Simulated scan of single mutants.
Amino acid sequence: MQHHSGASAATDNPAVGSLRHVASFPEALGTGIVMHTESALDTQVLSDIGTMIEAYEQVLSRFRDDSLVQQMSKAEHGGSFDFPDYLNPLFEIVDLLFAATQGSIDPLVGADLVKLGYGPDQSFHPRPDVRESLGWVHGRARWDEAVTRHGTTLITRQAVQCDFGAVGKGFLVDLLSERCAEHSKHLLIDAGGDLNIRAATPVSIALEDPSDDEDAVGVAEILNGSLCASAPSRRRWTAELEGQGTGKQPDEQHLGHETGLVTLHHLLNAIDGMPVEDVMATWVTSPNPSGTTPLDVHDFGNFPTAVADGLSTALFVCDPDTLSLSFPFECAVIRNDRTALVSRHFPGSLFIR
């Protein structure tokens, strides 16, 4: 099974083979969701899951014109927006990621993505003034200043373009895993490479080479927890900034250089709004609840996929040691020079040095 963000579980893996019942939701979250379960999910459960996915997207999707997030982007003078109560842990994780990265991870980076061409219309054509308007250093609203949160009520004073994608996909996977738990003891849920696994024996996960999606650079084994990956290789586009053409090749250009044709991607540093250039790929594992969470970190054990999802993005802008002060996790990182970092207890290895 190939997964868009850099992880795959071999179909001949015995642990996956024992999860012989498969249900898929190909349109969910833009990447699709595939659920492998030990026991078949009945029609009512599958219907409930479809309803959950629809309701979730209608609240959080920045690509749907009818979503609550889109209403926030159109409220010129701001307003009070009531999100479902079950999203409170998602907002808590977002708050903690914002604080741990000193603002480098910020939901309001959605405005920068739109300016770069990755908006609801997916034009992939940057706006002419993009260089001077990206990031909060150039005046874009900040999460801690433009949004006041009271539980799941968000209060704004201006239009804000939120993107909860760093955490949102993983959070939905956790919700679906909880919904299925009473019907199937063992399962594997895959949302475009965000994996939640509860298996009888460890599942081997191939770690996709960010430079070649037909190859692997490592393998991990997960028995009971989550693995999420991030890489810019799947959401990448080239565009020419007006008045800056040079004729150089796209892979030679970056947005910060005074050149024309540039290569862009969706993993931004929210401070300056720029695509991150020095990291190629990240993988994060997060444990399920165990009762052994260190006292100096927050316990989001009921949402391991949301945590792993958020951290796989945060590792593009923040070092693992800093993030470990706030979250329990293990990770592997490949930098742009093909050097690698693997944490001590990461449940796998990379084939590169």
Rank of each mutant, 00 (worst) to 15 (best):
L172I: 14
Y118R: 03
Q161L: 06
L187P: 01
E92P: 06
C162E: 00
Q122M: 07
F124N: 12
W143A: 13
G135T: 06
P107G: 02
V203G: 09
P210G: 07
G165V: 04
A159Q: 09
I205T: 02
E178T: 02
L116P: 02
S204F: 10
T153M: 13
Q102R: 12
V137K: 12
R198Q: 04
I197S: 05
F124R: 12
S204Y: 12
A146V: 13
G103Q: 05
D106E: 00
V147F: 03
I105G: 01
Q158N: 14
A159D: 04
P120A: 13
D190Y: 11
A199G: 02
E132H: 05
L176A: 04
N196C: 10
E208D: 07
A99Y: 08
A166E: 04
G170V: 05
V173R: 00
H125S: 12
T101V: 06
F98N: 04
E132W: 04
Q102D: 12
G103L: 10
E145P: 06
A111C: 03
I155N: 12
T201D: 10
D106W: 00
S133W: 09
D194Y: 03
G192L: 14
Y118H: 06
V217R: 00
C162T: 01
A99R: 13
A199P: 02
G168H: 09
F164R: 04
G135Y: 09
S184A: 07
T101P: 02
A166P: 02
E145Y: 15
D106V: 02
I155V: 15
D213S: 14
T156K: 11
S104P: 01
D106K: 00
Q122W: 02
H125D: 10
D209I: 04
L187I: 03
D95V: 13
L176T: 07
V160M: 11
P210E: 12
A100W: 00
V203M: 10
